[in-house]
Amino acid sequence: MNTTMMLVFLLLVILSAIIAGARRRQRRGRTSASQPQARRSRFAQVWNATGTPPRHYDVVAMVLTPTEQQFARVLAEALPSGYTVMVQVALQRVVTVRNPRRGQPWRDKRWNQISQKSLDFVIVRSADSKIILAIELDDATHLQANRIARDELLDTIMADAGVWLLHVPVRAHYDRHALQMQLLGYLAQ
């Protein structure tokens, strides 16, 4: 008798857990489905009021900031032929998640950690676009707490993936020869 009671109790607990999970999932789905509708109506309101569709985006005037441009020029001079510098490269195009969730990458927090980040400079071999080295130019913003945390995470990810990442502090002038020597060390590997 006791065993039967216990069985029934266990069965009830499992059933209620399953129902609670299903309801929670349903509620989540309903919330996410209602959001685009709300956005559309706000968009329509602005459109109707002004007569023109509201602008949400702007294109940047420059892909690189003046300090990055200055470094890019020195980098291009210091780099031997046969290598190309790419700028503002999406991190997810350099490293990828091991054993990703097929079709649902956004559910993977590891993917979310890399999906929105970019690298200032990536040096690739021109012949086959093999990734040689990534460079981050560290300006004053890299001293902020959130940037320090972001840099540490980036260092961990790149080290985990086995891609060299070089941090170069922003300077008024760059020593081309010193940078060349530093680069040769990486290119030789």
Partner: peptide, 24 residues
């Protein structure tokens, strides 16, 4: 994965090339 400071070891791997053959 919640703590961004500590990505676990062997979570990521490098892509062999930045461009695929068509992009190259």
């Amino acid at each position: 994965t919640e703590s961004p400071m500590h990505a676990r070891h062997r979570d990521y791997l490098a892509l062999p090339t930045l461009l695929n053959p068509t992009e190259q």
